[in-house]
Amino acid sequence: MFAVIKIAGQQFKVQPGQSLYVPHLTGKSGDKVEFSDILLHDSEGKISVGKDAKVTVKAEIVNDLIKGEKVIAFKMKRRKGFRKKHGHRTQYTQIKVTDIA
């Protein structure tokens, strides 16, 4: 049994008991979250797609804030003295899928 869900514009293939990192969600460790934007659902070989997939994915927040790798955006124009350095670390939330119902 698996489902393809949409979280913050990204698609994730999830199964019960799976742990994954998703874009930052509001909530604290131990909170329960539900995802109802299901794109595809497979239950014992029976596939439902789009609006036919009327299930919800229930998950629990394991870690509420995890920072990703540092990404540096550096711009420079030669012989002009122009240099711009900008960096960021993307924030993620670790969730564990408990049930697909």
Rank of each mutant, 00 (worst) to 15 (best):
F82E: 09
Q15G: 06
E60T: 07
V22F: 13
V97F: 00
K13N: 14
V49N: 06
L65D: 13
H24C: 13
G68C: 07
A73V: 14
D37F: 11
K46C: 06
G50T: 06
K75M: 02
K70W: 00
L39Y: 13
G50Q: 08
I95H: 01
G68E: 09
R89C: 09
K58E: 09
D64R: 01
N63L: 04
I95L: 07
E69F: 04
I5P: 01
A73F: 02
V71L: 03
A3M: 10
R83P: 01
K28T: 13
K51L: 13
K6V: 14
G27E: 09
G9V: 15
F82K: 05
M76C: 12
G9M: 14
T90Y: 02
R83G: 03
Q18Y: 04
F82Y: 14
K6T: 13
L40T: 08
K6P: 04
A53H: 12
Y92M: 15
I66N: 10
G45K: 11
D42E: 15
I38W: 03
Q15I: 06
V4S: 06
Y92E: 13
A73N: 14
H88L: 07
G9W: 13
K80M: 02
R83V: 08
G17K: 06
K51N: 15
I72H: 04
V33M: 09
K70Y: 07
I72E: 05
H88K: 12
F2S: 02
L40P: 02
I38T: 08
R83I: 10
R78C: 11
F74M: 05
I66P: 02
A53C: 14
Q94P: 05
Q91A: 15
R78W: 11
I100H: 00
G81Q: 02
K80N: 04
K32T: 03
N63P: 01
V57Q: 00
H86D: 08
K51D: 11
M1R: 08
D64C: 00
M1A: 07
I72S: 01
P23V: 12
D99S: 15
A3D: 06
T98I: 11
Q91D: 14
I7W: 10
E60A: 02
P16R: 13
F2G: 04
G81T: 03
K67A: 11
V49M: 13
I38P: 00
I95A: 00
V14Y: 06
R89V: 02
G17P: 05
R83C: 04
Y92W: 15
A101T: 01
V14S: 03
V71A: 03
K32L: 04
T98S: 12
D31Q: 03
I47R: 15
I38D: 04
S19A: 14
K84I: 06
A59L: 05
L25N: 14
